[in-house]
């Protein structure tokens, strides 16, 4: 057993683990963060993508001990203040998923791409998502979602006042922000709101 201390989605954890434990299984089995999934187990599909110190990695191809002293962000750590991340919102609105299995990894990788390139072309998006496989969508709507999220996020940084990027008021209570009213109590706000006006920015509905 080896002792590791790792910050996951903003919370610090210390655990004794077997050195052979893969990061993805540490997240799922030790921490219960089952939002990160295993798709292929051969490091090809990208479903297990998380951020390690802010950059994307395939968590099935990293040992948990290698994350000792570092910071991990999973799909479960993206939403802030009960508000979906603009990338999550854009996947929802652009119908960028069918079975949804590839989605956590797609979203994490798409966020990584925008860090380097806030305004990617279609080709750059396709290449940036090269290590993420989707068996359902044919990628078309995924590319659109990333374009929409990129537009919303650029708007968010340029004009934070009328963009939703972190648009909910500080500490906004969960169900109240959904606005459109379809969100059940246990759904994250936004989830039930197909196009929640005023919270998405121009690019998303264009």
């Amino acid at each position: 057993m080896t002792r590791i201390t790792v910050t996951v989605d903003g919370v610090e954890y210390s655990d004794d683990i077997e050195p052979r434990t893969l990061l993805v299984y540490y997240l799922r089995q030790n921490l219960g963060k089952t939002g990160t999934v295993v798709g292929c187990d051969t490091s090809n599909c990208g479903a297990c993508t998380v951020h390690l110190d802010g950059r994307s990695v395939k968590s099935c191809n990293v040992l948990a001990v290698q994350a000792d002293g570092h910071e991990v962000t999973t799909i479960e750590g993206l939403a802030a203040d009960g508000q979906l991340h603009p990338m999550q919102q854009a996947f929802h609105e652009s119908h960028a998923l069918q079975c949804g299995y590839c989605t956590p990894g797609m979203i994490m990788q798409a966020c990584d791409l925008l860090k380097d390139n806030p305004d990617p072309s279609e080709q750059e998006i396709r290449e940036g998502l090269e290590g993420n496989l989707c068996r359902c969508t044919g990628y078309h709507n995924i590319v659109r979602a990333v374009q929409h999220a990129a537009a919303a996020m650029r708007q968010g940084t340029e004009a934070p006042a009328d963009s939703a990027v972190p648009a909910a008021g500080p500490g906004a209570p969960e169900p109240a922000t959904a606005g459109v009213g379809a969100a059940g109590p246990e759904m994250p706000p936004g989830e039930g709101a197909p196009v929640s006006a005023g919270s998405t920015g121009e690019g998303v509905t264009a």
């Binding site: 490091s43 191809n61 990584d112 290590g131």
Partner: peptide, 9 residues
Amino acid sequence: VADPQIRHR
């Protein structure tokens, strides 16, 4: 080489 995730590691 490979993909962005693998190039990060």
